[in-house]
């Protein structure tokens, strides 16, 4: 049985408003679950964990055991390089909730999802303006930060400076990090509409 046209039109007009709350509740739940999953995956990433261990962290396997990643990049004691990334991820929000009218009835949500570049912009190398350590994880990091940090320490304390020849074996192996995470979860968030 086919509904009369005026009834169909009335349903189409009223339904989006009626379903707004239950839809939003459901979407919010799925959004939060996905966001939590993404943040958890980021915090459990080997690179994140190594950096969060700070200057006292154990020597990194990705650096042949010569030093830890925190020191290799050249961070100072007290630096929290992960915090700006975490802030961006925690600030992912649903910014729009509108009626979906192209096909059928429903609601459309816009999610303010960061790009990899936005992450790179808030993760500067401690020794270079314009370079990102998070991008460096993906494309390569030289031992320059480590050497400069060693020199600074040596010049202050009189400790012998480790030459770059000794650092050579600590060559960093490029690792999939932010870009891969962003690409993976962008697709998943897109499916929430």
């Amino acid at each position: 049985m086919r509904l009369p046209a005026d009834v169909q039109a009335a349903i189409k007009k009223q339904l989006p408003k009626l379903i707004k709350r239950p839809f939003r509740r459901d979407v919010d739940k799925r959004f939060k679950s996905l966001k939590d999953k993404m943040i958890k995956e980021f915090l459990n990433h080997r690179i994140t964990k190594e950096i969060q261990e700070g200057p006292q962290g154990s020597a990194s396997g990705s650096l042949n055991g010569v030093t830890n990643l925190f020191a290799f990049i050249g961070f100072d004691d007290g630096d929290d390089p992960i915090a700006p990334i975490l802030t961006i991820f925690e600030n992912i929000k649903i910014t729009q909730d509108t009626e979906y009218i192209q096909k059928g009835v429903g609601r459309k949500y816009k999610i303010d999802f960061p790009t990899a570049q936005e992450i790179f912009d808030v993760t500067p190398m401690p020794w270079a303006i314009g370079r990102s350590w998070a991008q460096g994880i993906e494309v390569g990091i030289s031992g320059l930060g480590y050497l400069l940090r060693k020199k600074a320490k040596g010049s202050r304390s009189g400790v012998a400076i480790q030459s770059s020849k000794q650092v050579r074996s600590a060559k960093f192996k490029n690792t999939k990090y932010i870009s891969a995470l962003i690409n993976k979860y962008k697709k998943r968030f897109d499916k929430l509409k």
Binding site: A128, I129, G130, R131, A152
Partner: peptide, 22 residues
């Protein structure tokens, strides 16, 4: 193209008085 340069603090650790960019 991405350009970057050593911070002033890092430059102080160099033996030569050079300004370094990438």
């Amino acid at each position: 193209v991405t350009t970057s340069k050593l911070t002033q603090r890092a430059l102080k650790e160099l033996t030569n008085e050079l300004y370094v960019g990438f």
